[in-house]
Write a protein that binds this DNA or RNA. Structure first.
Length: 1116
RNA sequence: GCUCAAGUGGCGGAAUUGGUAGACGCGCUGGAUUCAAAAUCCAGUUCUUUCGAGAGUGUGGGUUCGAUUCCCACCUUGAGUACCA
């Protein structure tokens, strides 16, 4: 019986589908294992051989885990909302739902014929209302939440309202908008409903705000930062401009630190973690305020601390009494504006606790100089409250509430009021963020972004013209130009000066477009000696470059090293190294009140609105201009039908075309826009959600995919918990994988999911490249200048298109010679004419299907190929009667004619061969080229395997006991294959199978004892052929859950070893010796051997190294 | 520029607690079978060679009895990222 892959594969695919073989149960005695592939977008082009690579790997692992006794969840579905379907709809008028459905059908057919063990009963599609109902539901949960920095998690918005009602917002420590105004509880109660909602929006985790967005006019939508590559849209490569729009945003910045910390707990590839770390962009430094000089006055504060005193303080802080510890435990968790510090110097006194932002000192009473202290504190603008040890120990809660009260209602102090007046005079200040506060004495100027709001206010009359001209010039340059051109240094002096907060010196304020308005505060303190950009700027404009590094030459470039550098010329920082100077600088800034330590993140809040049709509608309507959530029991809000998918004429998103798109708040349903004049009917949101909305939580839905009453049941979430193995491409590093982690952490905070990282282990499969085939075409040009009987055109017309086989030339000159020789030999041109010819070579892609394994072109096929109509009459210069093509590895793409469709491979070689070959290509994570010719190797391996079970045409296995050699082969294979799968080294296990089959063929083995377990080993890789042979062996059940064979080391025990005998580390010959021999016996035998004597040529070895069971090395 | 990864036959690749470099497969060469081709089977296939042997894992050093594997410097390629203060 011949191995007929077509019939076998079709039958078993039908069997698995009919019997729901791979349906996972949510209840099982077995341990669970969840294997997931990254959500595919069903594109119109279908799959090429690169796509299934990851699916095959995950399928092998899933099948392996089933053999190992796990209850395996291995689902698949479609991320079916998205831009391509909509672009297609705009072009053709076809509903995206229809084209998406067709594309999914193609995908499903292609996936099915590769024999994946997916549990299709759990299939999800993001564009299905039953699914996006829950995407909308999560959006509502985000809307109803705020981020409490004190508890460091998301909480329900009602807890925030409660605080507002009770004590206003002064004590709230939340992640929120930056321009929050402080209000009291009474003020809150006085606010109108709309005002209250506006304030709450500033705190919600998803919020509506006017943001600068990346607007892509060609696509008619905004794009997220990760959807832009090199300043143009990732899809289509269209230009992107900055534009202010009212948009929904996600407060992902609240999770910046946790997203960073979480990376340490998950087994993901390092490059992927690195790019997330990079994207989040944490930088630790300080915020420093520089006053703009109006009346030139000197800073007065002269209190400084030496480093020794600082160290002494540190020690004190660690030795707190019990009462101190109790109170500190309560105070230390306060963050942000009401953050407390312990053992701090205020004026000349060391205080117990101080909240610098609120000017409040908390002390233990009973200090000798209490009166003097109080007076001094008041003079410096601080309030002080005191408690006894007993008060703290007996009722710390009461003490804390008194402290809170004091924070909220600060006692007005005379002196500080006076100071405020002084400050009012100097009302402009420039805040900067710096990662190098240690270099603050190196500041010789400041640079503002041209867009900085202070620019217009501080520019002097004399400089006005220059500054305005510069701003105009910058505005003309696009964002892309600015990014591309980093070499041109440009800027303008504002004429204004800032006061150096430490030295009191005046420093020039410049504007320059190397400072970005969107990062940090849009201003920098320039330290030209320590930052190359500042250095270049200073050099260009002749600004002084003070050197504050000890023994460092800065005449050529800035000195950016931190480690090992000692600070100089910096007053109290002089003589300190980077780390200590950094700490002391921040300490002094905080003490003097013009700066504080701060951590900055590059991660911006994510824009969540898209002006597109084919996405999830928001469950939102607008009442008095304020967004209102539709109650979850009325979900899903189904995407309305529209006439056309383009924006409306007045520039509204496509949903503006819908006629049934208003919310009847009384009837609780979507109604016709005609009813909008009714008082209880409101307009619905016209934006839709971005592509990443549906894919940020789908892995949870698979756990309970058909649940219509819940996102997923608690039991199923608790059972499956997280994805154990997630396989997909590295292109999702900063998009999907960051947003999904963010949502998971949010859902975790809200108690909806049981874990805060959704995927324990992740593997990035490498790309499969195409091997393009080239033919070499000769283009003839006729040189002018010579008079001939025939015209140039006549000569050209005589010359046919010529292709030259690859190995006939090695450079362009040889190519020309070959062609001209051919023309002469064929008598196409005469000698005289040939001298006028110039031959130019051009490389043309040939369709790879026209080329065989030996790089030989099917010439007739090439001529008659529809793409090559121009070359129908072309001539081919052959070598040894064949035309050889050139090969080059390139990305697999239609335009390069190197795309290989898995359908063709499956039809010719079968799914099992495809699966084996994709794994055999090389390590999973690595990028590697596809060359169809190699598949014959795995194909003949399967035929050889098949033959082991047959005698002639008859299926026949022997029931005899296996021999020692047979068992050795089997157990060697079990061991290696098991190790390989666990290490995701699938390519080497395919080799192992080949070796096993080669050995068993050589042994003429046909014992059931060997051939049965062999099938189980192979079945994850080649499920169809193994099912078929398993059935022929007499089994009625599927092979898929048969226990994996157990490795027994006893079969590999050897009595002798073929020792490599090396001389000076080089192996010269091998010698079979018993493993029972001792070191000495081995040495003796080896030294006595004739080959050893021959090698030594009479020399006496200096040393003989014997490692029993391994090697013998003779030195000398 | 910065960060990361990788450099092994004609090709894909294998071998790392440091111990026989090139497993397995493709391709190639020769042979068997065949009228012939395909398929199949057998033998060979890193390079050099005076057929004794010698050299060899990007380059140059180092550690070691012994290095593809560990350390240092450099070169090349690929990926990501980029006025991030």
């Amino acid at each position: 019986m011949q191995y007929n892959h077509k019939e076998i594969e079709k039958n078993w695919q039908k069997f698995w589908a009919d019997n729901q073989t791979f349906k996972a149960s949510n209840e099982s005695e077995k341990p669970k294992y969840y294997v997931l592939d990254m959500f595919p977008y069903p594109s119109g082009a279908g799959l090429h051989v690169g796509h299934p690579l990851g699916y095959i790997a995950s399928d092998i692992y899933a099948r392996y885990k089933r053999h190992k006794g796990f209850n395996v969840l291995h689902p698949q579905g479609y991320d079916s909302f998205g831009l391509p379907a909509e672009q297609y709809a705009i072009q053709t008028g076809q509903h995206p739902a229809k084209t998406t459905e067709e594309n999914i059908k193609t995908y499903r057919r292609q996936l099915d014929q590769i024999g994946f063990s997916f549990d299709w009963s759990r299939e999800v599609r993001t564009s299905n209302p039953e699914y996006y109902k829950w995407t909308q539901w999560i959006f509502i949960q985000l809307f109803n939440s705020w981020y409490n920095k004190d508890s460091d998690k998301a909480e329900d918005i009602s807890t925030l309202e409660k605080v507002f009602k009770k004590e206003g917002n002064a004590t709230v420590n939340a992640v929120c908008d930056e321009d929050i105004t402080v209000f009291s509880a009474d003020e809150w109660k006085e606010f109108s409903k709309t005002e209250q909602e506006e304030i709450l929006l500033q705190y919600r985790l998803t919020f509506l705000s006017d943001t600068e967005v990346n607007w892509c006019p060609a696509l008619g939508t905004v794009l997220a930062n990760d959807e832009i590559v090199n300043g143009v849209s990732e899809r289509g490569g269209h230009p992107v401009v900055r534009k202010k729009m009212t948009q929904w945003s996600m407060r992902i910045s609240a999770y910046a630190q946790r997203l960073l910390d979480g990376l340490n707990t998950i087994d993901w590839p390092q490059p992927l973690k690195d790019s997330q770390t990079n994207w989040i962009g944490r930088s630790q430094g300080a915020m420093v305020s520089f006053q703009v000089d109006v009346a030139s006055e000197k800073s007065t504060s002269e209190v400084k601390l030496s480093y020794k005193e600082l160290e002494a303080l540190k020690e004190l802080r660690q030795n707190l009494s019990k009462a101190e510890t109790t109170l500190w435990n309560e105070l230390k968790n306060k963050k942000g504006a009401s953050k407390f510090r312990k053992k701090y110097t205020i004026a000349t006194f060391l205080v117990d606790y101080v909240c610098i932002a609120k000017n409040l000192i908390v002390e233990f009473s009973g200090k000798e100089d209490e009166e003097a202290r109080t007076e001094s504190f008041h003079k410096n603008g601080f309030n002080v409250i005191r408690f006894t040890n007993e008060e703290v120990l007996q009722n710390v809660v009461k003490v804390v509430s008194e402290i809170n009260f004091a924070i909220q209602f600060p006692q007005v102090i005379g002196e500080s009021a006076e100071e405020t007046e002084v400050k009012d005079e100097n009302k402009y200040k420039i805040d900067v963020f710096t990662t190098r506060p240690d270099t603050i004495y190196g500041v010789s100027f400041m640079t503002l972004a041209p867009e900085h709001e202070l620019v217009s206010k501080i520019t002097t009359d004399a400089q006005k013209a220059e500054v305005e001209a510069y701003i105009k010039a910058t505005a003309k340059r696009s964002e892309r130009d600015r990014m591309a051109d980093v070499k041109t240094i440009s800027g303008a002096f504002t004429g204004a000066y800032a006061i150096h907060p430490f030295s009191g010196e005046k420093v020039q304020i410049w504007i320059g477009d190397y400072v970005l308005a969107s990062y940090g505060t849009g201003a920098v303190m320039a330290v030209p000696c320590g930052d190359q950009r500042d250095y270049d700027f200073a050099k260009h404009f002749n600004i002084p470059i003070p050197n504050i590094f000890e023994g460092v030459d800065i005449s050529e470039a800035a000195h950016t090293d931190k480690e090992g550098t000692v600070i100089a010329n910096s007053d109290f920082l002089s003589g300190l190294k980077y780390k200590k100077a950094l700490k002391l600088a921040i300490y002094e800034m905080e003490k003097r009140g013009f700066g504080y330590g701060k951590i900055n993140y590059r991660l911006r809040d994510a824009v969540f609105s898209r002006q597109r049709y084919w996405g999830e509608p928001f469950p939102v309507y607008y009442k008095d201009g304020m967004p209102q959530m539709i109650d979850e029991k009325h979900l899903p809000i189904v995407l309305p039908e529209v006439e056309k998918y383009l924006p409306t004429e007045d520039g509204k998103p496509p949903l503006g075309n819908a006629t049934e798109w208003a919310w009847d708040s009384r009837g609780k349903k979507v109604v016709s826009n005609d009813k909008l004049k009714n008082k209880t009917v409101y307009p619905l949101e016209l934006n839709t959600m971005p592509g990443w909305a549906g894919s940020s939580w789908y892995f949870n839905r698979y756990m309970d995919a058909t649940n219509s009453t819940e996102f997923a049941s608690k039991e199923s979430l608790d059972y499956w918990k997280e994805v154990d193995l997630y396989i997909g491409g590295s292109e999702h590093a900063t998009g999907h994988l960051l947003y999904a982690r963010f949502w998971q952490k949010f859902l975790f905070d809200k108690g909806i999911v049981p874990v805060d990282e959704f995927a324990k282990k992740l593997i990035n499969q490498g790309m499969i490249l195409g091997t393009s085939a080239f033919v070499y075409k000769a283009d003839a040009f006729v040189k002018s200048g010579c008079s001939l009987s025939s015209s140039f055109d006549d000569i050209k017309a005589k010359i046919p298109t010529i292709f030259v086989s690859k190995d006939l030339f090695s450079n362009d000159d040889e190519f020309e010679n070959v062609v001209i020789e051919y023309l002469l030999n064929q008598k196409i041109v005469n000698q005289q004419e040939s001298e006028l010819l110039t031959i130019i070579k051009s490389n043309i892609h040939s369709d790879v299907s026209l080329v065989n394994a030996s790089d030989e072109l099917d010439v007739e096929g090439f001529k008659s190929h529809p793409l090559n109509a121009d070359y129908k009459d072309a001539k081919f210069i052959l070598e040894n009667d064949v035309y050889k093509v050139g090969r080059e590895v390139e990305k697999m793409s239609k335009s390069k004619y190197n795309v290989v469709n898995p359908d063709d491979i499956v039809a010719e070689y079968g799914a099992d061969s495809l699966r084996l070959f994709e794994m055999f290509l090389g390590p999973l994570e690595q990028t590697k080229p596809w060359k169809t010719s190699g598949i014959s190797g795995v194909s003949s391996f399967l035929k050889k395997l098949w033959k082991l079970y047959f005698k002639g045409d008859q299926f026949e296995v022997s029931e005899e006991n296996a021999t020692k050699d047979e068992l050795k082969t089997l157990h060697k294979t079990i061991k290696k294959v098991e190790e390989d799968i666990e290490n995701f080294s699938f390519n080497t296990s395919v080799s192992t199978f080949m070796i096993a089959v080669n050995e068993l063929t050589a042994l003429k083995s046909n014992k059931r004892e060997i051939l049965e377990p062999l099938l189980v080993l192979l079945s994850p890789y080649a499920p169809h052929i193994t099912e078929e042979l398993w059935r022929l062996l007499g089994h009625t059940e599927s092979i898929s859950t048969v226990p994996f064979p157990i490795f027994e080391p006893k079969h590999l025990v050897e009595s002798a070893k073929n020792y490599p005998i090396s001389f000076n580390g080089k192996m010269r010959f091998t010698l079979e010796l018993s493993l029972d021999l001792s070191k000495e016996e081995i040495e003796k035998t080896v030294m006595a051997h004739e080959k050893t004597i021959a090698q030594l040529e009479g020399r006496t070895p200096k040393k003989v190294i014997v490692v029993p069971g391994k090697i013998v090395n003779i030195v000398g």
